[in-house]
Amino acid sequence: MEIRVNDNDGLTVFSLKGRLDFTNSSNLKEEIMKSVKEGKKQMILNLSQVDFINSSGLGTLVSILKEVRLARGRMVLTDLASYVQEIFEITQLSHIFEIFPSQSEAVEAFATSPVNVN
C-alpha cells in the first residue's frame, strides 16, 4: 500500500493506494498515529485508489478511528469505490465512520464543523 501525506491548513490528507489488508494495515496505523502524536488530529483518508479492502483492513480503520477520537481528533473517509462503500454498508460501519463522496466535500465539512459529528 502506498500512503501519500499532505498537510493543508490544519488538515492532514492521507491518500491511500492499493490493497488494505492483513499484510499492510499496520503500516497505515503507524503513519496516522505518528501524525496524531505530532498534534495533527484533523484528517481525511482519501480511498479513491484503494482497490481492495477486507475485514483486516476494516478492523484497522476502526482501531485507528477509536484512537483518533480518544485523542479528540476527527478522521473522515472520502472517495470510496462503490464496492468498498458496499462493505461499509453491510458491516454498518457507515454509521460509525463519517464518509463523504469527495475530498472537497470533506474539506467543506471540516470548515463548517471542525468537531466530530458522530
Binding site: S55, L65, I90
Partner: peptide, 18 residues
Amino acid sequence: TAVAADQTGGRGIGFLKE
C-alpha cells in the same frame, strides 16, 4: 455476521456468508 459494531475483528466469516 459481517456486522460487528465498532469491534476491530470478527467480520471475515460474515463476508463469506454474505
